[in-house]
């Protein structure tokens, strides 16, 4: 039975992707034997599986995701963290300092106060509960220095590239330290402000051109040109 789209073709919600002998993948649905797209994105055909890589959309937490969030509230036993998602995350005291809450700790704002940016990992989330975070672990914790840049959460995989090819290339060329949060926040730290600027420019390019093939080469050219100029 026929396939109605080409690989990497731009599709919109309700667009017929395939009929019959195909399986519905991400961002698609099946109705009476036909597979339709759910979102604006690029069609992806892998064997018998037809899916859509969305170009825009909200961030829905997944257990194990690395996220960059901002503390927006303090409760009795922890912090409320905005992770750029429909759901506010909770960071409880044990997940922040590795020991249970005790009154001797003093005010929690001494550990993390409102407005602090943290690098955290999602440890639990399902539809009945708000996501829980931890900042215990390597590379996690309160952010000290650097800039945070926004990118559509659906384009994060594009910034990372296949097996991390894109992000390693950007890191290597600019010498900046880059932490990519799955929630569409990217933290950049670098000594040379010009290099940081180039990284931000590269992220803007990913934002704008994620749907156009050959992006890695264009970004390499952009950074190399920027370094000379």
């Amino acid at each position: 039975m026929p396939l109605h789209v080409e690989h990497k073709q731009l599709v919109v919600p309700g667009e017929l992707l395939a009929e019959g002998d195909y399986l519905p993948g991400d961002n698609t649905y099946m109705a009476s034997g036909k597979i339709y797209s759910q979102r604006v994105g690029l069609a992806e055909v892998k064997g018998k599986k037809v899916s859509v890589v969305a170009l825009k959309g909200p961030y829905i937490p997944k257990v194990g995701d690395l996220v960059i969030g901002q503390v927006v509230g303090i409760t009795l036993g922890g912090w409320l963290v905005d992770i750029n998602s429909p759901y506010t995350a909770i960071l409880s005291v044990p997940d922040a300092i590795g020991k249970p809450f005790s009154p001797e700790l003093g005010p929690l704002a001494k550990i993390l106060s409102i407005g602090d940016t943290i690098i955290a990992k999602v440890i639990a989330f399902d539809r009945t509960r708000d996501p829980s975070l931890t900042i215990k672990g390597r590379g996690l914790g309160k952010m000290e220095g650097g800039v945070v840049v926004d990118l559509a959460p659906t384009k994060i995989p594009r910034l990372i590239g296949r097996k991390g090819s894109m992000i390693t290339m950007i890191k290597k060329l600019t010498g900046c330290e880059i932490v990519v949060g799955q929630n569409g926040k990217v933290l950049i730290r670098g000594r040379n402000p010009k290099m940081v600027e180039l990284v931000i420019g590269a992220i803007r390019m990913v934002e704008e051109q994620a749907h156009i093939p050959g992006l890695t080469d264009r970004i390499r050219a952009y950074i190399e040109q920027g370094k000379q100029g």
Partner: peptide
């Protein structure tokens, strides 16, 4: 659709 909300 522009907001990236899944639609039938």
């Amino acid at each position: 659709a522009d907001a990236g909300i899944p639609l039938k």
